[in-house]
Design a protein around this nucleic acid. Sequence first.
DNA 1: TCAAAAGTGTTCTCCCTACACCCATGG
DNA 2: CCATGGGTGTAGGGAGAACACTTTTGA
Lengths: 231, 231
Amino acid sequence: MMEENKYCYNYPHPAVTTDCVIFGFDGNGLKVLLIERGIEPYKGKWAFPGGFINMNETAEAGALRELKEETGLENAYIEQFNTYSEPDRDPRERVITIAHYALVRIQEVKGGDDAAKAGWFHIDDVPQLAFDHDKILRDAMKKLRERIHFEPIGFELLPEKFTMKDLQLLYESILDVKFDRRNFAKKMMHYELLSQLDETVRPTAKRDALLYSFNKENYELFKKKGFQLEF
Amino acid sequence: MMEENKYCYNYPHPAVTTDCVIFGFDGNGLKVLLIERGIEPYKGKWAFPGGFINMNETAEAGALRELKEETGLENAYIEQFNTYSEPDRDPRERVITIAHYALVRIQEVKGGDDAAKAGWFHIDDVPQLAFDHDKILRDAMKKLRERIHFEPIGFELLPEKFTMKDLQLLYESILDVKFDRRNFAKKMMHYELLSQLDETVRPTAKRDALLYSFNKENYELFKKKGFQLEF
DNA sequence: TCAAAAGTGTTCTCCCTACACCCATGG
DNA sequence: CCATGGGTGTAGGGAGAACACTTTTGA
C-alpha cells in the first residue's frame, strides 16, 4: 500500500501547504467558508480549505486553486497574510502553511467540486477549528482590519450595486465598531470612491434606498497617490 | 563527494529558508544590512542574510538565528512580512523563503560571526541584489511603512536617548516625507509616548538639544486600547 | 556679528462628531 | 395613522497645517 518514497534530498524538507480563509458578506455580518474534515487528524472538525502546494505554482496560485475548488470563483481578491511554521502544528509531519485570505461576493459562490461538506459561518459564530486554524482566523481578521485602512477592499465583498447601509454594515462588521449613519455616508462620499446610481431598491419593505457602485476610475487615481482611509 | 540523499518523501517537498531584512538607523537615514555572497549563484552580489530553516525551529526562530549570526544581537524586534514562492526564484532547486524584517539599534551591532563580508547600505543607495531580493526589499519597506501606523516601531531603531530631530528624521526616512519641525514635535508629545529627560546633547556643535526616551508604560496602556498613529 | 540649529506659540481651516427633522411606505 | 427605515443639514470643538521669532553657540 505504501508507495515508494521517490523524492529524496540531502537535508530534511518540510511539506508546504497553502490555506485560504475565504471571507464573504451577506448583508448580515462577515462570514467565513469552512470545510468539514473527512479524514484524520481532526476528522469531523472544521478547517479552512487548503492543500499541498504544487511544485510549479506559486503559493498564491495554490490558494486560488483552492478557492476555485470550493467556490467556483476565479479572480477573487486574494492576499497572503502569514506563514505558519511551528514544528508540531501538524501531527503527521512538519507542515509549513502559507495562509491567504480571499474576499468574495457570496452571492456568486457556487457549491464546490469537492465532496467535502462546506459551510459559511458568521464570524462571531465559528466553532473550534482543526490544527491551529483558530489562530489563523484571528490573524486573518487582524490583517483584514489593517488592510482596510490602506485599500478600500470592502468593495470586493459587496455586489456591484449596494446601499449605503450595506456598506456601513460591512465596515462595522470588519472593524467591530458602530458608526453614525449620517457621518458614515458623508465620509464615504467624501472619498469619491462611490458612484450614486439612478436606481433604488427596497431592502426592508419600507422606503426605497439609493444604490451605489464602486467608482473604479477614482480608485485607480487615488491608489497612485497612495491614500489612507480613516476610520 | 555527493552525500547520499537520505531524506525521502512520497511527494516533492520544496526547500524552505528564512531571510532577514535588517534595518538600522544612524541619524542619517534608514539603512539595511547586506551580505556579499561568496558562492554561486549570484556570487559577489549582495543579499539579505538567510538560510535553511531547521526542522525543529519556527521561521521566526530561524530569522533570529540569522540576525544573531550577523549582528550579535538577540531579542530584536522582528516581524514576518511575506513568503516568496515563485518556482524558479532560486536556480538550484525550488526554494520557498519566509521573509522577515528586523529593527535594530545600529549602535549595538557587532560584526557577525560569519566570514562573509557584510555592510550597511543607505536605503536609497542599495546595489542590485541577488535572487529576487530587490523585490523583497521593496516589500519590506512597504510593510514597515504600513506597520508604523499601528505600532510605534520607530523606537526600536533609536538608542535609548534621542533628540526630537532624530525621531523626526527617522519617521521622514521611513515614510519618505517631510514634516514641519514644530508640528511634528507637538503631535509626538501629544501621543504621550515620549518622556523628556533632564539631559541634553549637542549633536551638531550648535545649541543643546533636549533628550527624550520612549515611554514604555504609556505605550502598553495605549496598545491595550488599540491606537493609531496618524502621519 | 552672523549663520545655523533648537526651542516655542498662534491662527486658521477643515474634518470629525454629535445630534434632529422630514419623508415615504406598509401594516 | 403610526412605526420603521431612509434621506439630509448644522453647530461646535479639536486637531492638523501653515507660519515667525527668539536663543544659543561656534566660527
